[in-house]
Design a protein around this nucleic acid. Sequence first.
DNA 1: TACAAGTTTGAAACGATTACAAAGTTAAAA
DNA 2: TTTTAACTTTGTAATCGTTTCAAACTTGTA
Lengths: 129, 129
Amino acid sequence: MNHGIRPSVQRVAIMEYLMKHHTHPTVDTIYHDLLATMPTLSRTTVYNTLELLHSHNAVQALTIDSRNVHYDGMMSPHAHFMCRCCGRIIDLPMHSDLPANPLPQHVSRVEQIQLNYSGVCDECNENNC
Amino acid sequence: MNHGIRPSVQRVAIMEYLMKHHTHPTVDTIYHDLLATMPTLSRTTVYNTLELLHSHNAVQALTIDSRNVHYDGMMSPHAHFMCRCCGRIIDLPMHSDLPANPLPQHVSRVEQIQLNYSGVCDECNENNC
DNA sequence: TACAAGTTTGAAACGATTACAAAGTTAAAA
DNA sequence: TTTTAACTTTGTAATCGTTTCAAACTTGTA
């Protein structure tokens, strides 16, 4: 559960935040939400911790949004959809057990796979936003 | 071929650059390379043009790299691999005709799909970089 | 209790991208 | 042609997510 990472108060709070909220938050969202209960929290700590968690494979760093990185505490294989209107990111099942293994040419090690969809979500489509 | 876009000198140069170079360049790479032959080219024009081409589905905007957007003039379905050491992005075949159609729940319109791998490329693995 | 290693913090720097207004270009009407 | 309006390019300045860095703080261990 702690992935060999020393569990400081801040790190635990950030990891718990990601386990609880499956909203694919950005650094800033996490920072602002946690600030309510941890008034001394620094944005840098959030950056550092997410980088640490990511490098220990405890969280995913989603690059679906070119504007900023989103984080995801759910590590089981699934895809993501981002609505280009409201920006929301939602989880999608990943049917096919994707081409992970037959190691592609020129590639020695595959460490991460992301399957990203984008378009318009139901809600935005109705509000033709 | 021109996707309903008025073909200014700059736009044609940028589109041709992407058709010729399958290196998934960033805005800055395109800007610098074209500057050699178009000394008055502005970085803003490159941004504007790529946004225009992208919105007309003439090019892909790859979000595989959280640092900056890369562009790809090849529109046939294929996946990408980015080496975390050298940063190079290479094309991979996309075997399985991916889950595009059975429209996922909560999604009204899928406009783009990206399948992104990352890890270490052969070359970097040898130079254990 | 003291020290060293590790962690957090906040300010400053960085760099990709966007906003904006002025100058330039193009196309079509008169 | 000439005029005019619409479109395009340009360069500067602003924005904002992220990184850098050093000082202050905390923790575990000697």
